Computed example of a mutant assay.
Amino acid sequence: MLEVKGLTKRFGGNLAVDNVSFRVDRPMMIGIIGRSGAGKSTFLRMMNRLTEASEGVLAFEGRNVLPLAGKAKREWQSTCAMIFQQFNLVPRMDVVSNVLHGTLGRRSTLATMFNLYPESDIHQAIDILDRLGIAQHAEKRAEALSGGQQQRVAIARALMQDPKVILADEPIASLDPMNAQTVMEALRRIHDEDGRMVIANLHTLDTARRYCDRIIGMRDGRVVFDGTPAQLTTGVARDIYGAGADFSEAATSTEIRDHHDIEAAEIRNAEVAI
């Protein structure tokens, strides 16, 4: 379904993504982890064609999407929707109109200028908001919503594109644990119920283990781990992050757990590492 071969991105003399290769044979929920600067965001931006690759192949359903231009490139960007850490909504616009922006790729210039939407699209937008539990906020300005609600609006906008792939670049990095859990559960449901591939850059290991089928670890632009959540031991995590023996997952945990749960998890991780 997705095949990445030798994908590389150079910024001057620096390698942001260095010869990345992997393949995905079916729709999965994939988490990409690694420290800041590992190349995670650059990889997603290349996949969505927001950033041009220096070399390599990125083939989806047998077609290399990297050379696409013009209409074909825009069609790919509709097929491969992007969700950002900072939501990228229009703050003063109402929620349902923000969601309807997901249809811009298939609307005429005139319709876009005058915000003319078919009634069927409006109903679809409200249905998607209802699915995500925020239909009651459809008429509010986006800026009036909490961070977690705004991220669900961004997910709804992505779903309006009817994509085969959803890319999420640190979707919960700016959210509190409760909203982070709500957003991750929404992405997981979309994968399970719709059969869409979801690839998310994540900054916490517990989140990747809990929600993802497969985890890819990046360090200095290269893939240094590719496996299941069960294979992501504390020792492997230390290697991905270049951390020492004092590395503790509890410090970055986003799970809603009490202190005793965190201590128990640390003991289990230590036993696995030994």
Rank of each mutant, 00 (worst) to 15 (best):
L68M: 15
P91R: 01
T51K: 00
R74I: 06
A144M: 12
L100G: 04
L68D: 09
A53T: 09
V90R: 00
F84K: 01
P163V: 07
I126H: 02
R107E: 01
R107M: 15
L132F: 09
L132P: 10
S78L: 13
A154K: 12
H123M: 12
I126C: 03
M46S: 05
I134H: 00
R157Q: 01
Q150M: 15
D94C: 09
E143H: 08
R141L: 02
E52A: 10
V65Q: 03
R74N: 13
N98S: 01
P91N: 02
V165K: 05
S108A: 04
L68V: 07
K71E: 12
Q77N: 12
T109I: 14
S78F: 00
P91H: 05
M113A: 15
L50G: 00
G70W: 08
I134V: 08
E52K: 12
A125E: 00
L110V: 15
R107T: 04
C80V: 02
Q86E: 12
V65E: 01
E139R: 15
A135H: 05
S120H: 12
L50P: 00
L50R: 04
V96H: 03
I126A: 01
G148L: 03
E75D: 14
P67K: 08
I155A: 09
A154L: 10
I83S: 08
V165M: 15
N48E: 10
I155H: 07
V95T: 06
L104H: 12
